[in-house]
Amino acid sequence: MNGIRFRLNGKDTCYEGSAADRLLDVLRDEYDMKSVKCGCKEGECGACAVLIDGVLINSCCVAMGAVDSHEILTVEGYRETARFEALSKAFADLSAVQCGFCIPGMILAAEALLSKNAHPTEQEVRTALSGNICRCTGYNAIVNAVMNAAKEGDGLW
């Protein structure tokens, strides 16, 4: 019973490695969750953001022991949902995905916002995405896509 038990994308699992290991590394290397990107490993870019109990967290700043008995969602799990579909369509409509590296984190940041606030203002969207650096888009397309998803996906959140 020494392992770290948690739920990953709806499935129970147990991690037998060190409690000091970094969630980012464990998700990528042990669980093959490659949507979780490493941009800086210092909590300053959001590329590795995941949802822990529905809350947006940078997985580079989490040690495994902290997730014991918690529930983690990555894009690998989220992409099966209708909410994801709505966001994906809104992003596609505005060509908001350029290099793509920030996008999984960005999508989860959008979900974290919309799940608490289904009809955000632009300012609220910008605040919610402010820890997710995108160097390609200048953010307009992404912000507008999240606004559109909220509008079009009415009822999903």
Binding site: S35, V75, L87, S88, F91
Partner: peptide, 23 residues
């Protein structure tokens, strides 16, 4: 006229393989 980008789905779904993603 804008179209859906060809690499949209794999990128947003996290399926695109960047160099660090090869096992």
């Amino acid at each position: 006229r804008s179209v859906k980008k060809k690499d949209h789905d794999p990128k947003i779904e996290g399926r695109s393989v960047y160099v660090d993603d090869y096992n």
